[in-house]
């Protein structure tokens, strides 16, 4: 059941993205920005967490989940260190993902050559 919920919710979030791409001609970079920002706002309002409780990775793996992570991080940081958390919370929460992307992308750049599609 857990897996089914992750599959359905994750798939549906991707379908929203697909409709945006095909209907509005938004490029993928804009889709990524939109989803992270929306996820962060919904996270700030505490709504996204409800979806995450229901769907698990189905809500956490898509990019709005990354936005939610930033919002959650800010709130927790403010709770523990106060006003400074406004600045440090978001990046701190996203640090794992961003650093992982940088390290693995750099490794790929060292190892691989560009390929034709």
């Amino acid at each position: 059941m857990e897996y089914l919920k992750a599959f359905a919710v994750g798939g549906l979030i991707c379908v929203i993205g697909q409709i945006l791409i095909d209907k509005t001609k938004l490029t993928s970079a804009r889709i990524l920005v939109l989803f992270v920002v929306v996820g962060c706002i919904l996270g700030g309002l505490g709504w996204y967490e409800k979806l995450a409780d229901f769907a698990g990775a189905g809500a956490n793996v898509p990019l709005p989940g990354f936005g939610n992570l930033l919002a959650k991080g800010v709130k927790e940081e403010i709770d523990s260190v106060g006003a400074l958390g406004i600045l440090t919370g978001g990046i701190k929460a996203g640090a794992g993902g961003i650093a992982a992307a940088i390290v693995s992308a750099f490794a790929a750049a060292v190892i691989f050559r560009p390929k034709e599609k």
């Binding site: 994750g10 798939g11 979030i13 991707c14 379908v15 929203i16 993205g17 697909q18 945006l20 791409i21 095909d22 993928s28 889709i31 990524l32 989803f35 793996v61 898509p62 990019l63 989940g65 990354f66 993902g97």
Partner: peptide, 8 residues
Amino acid sequence: GAGSIVPI
């Protein structure tokens, strides 16, 4: 398409 753009 979006199926592999939207996930992390």
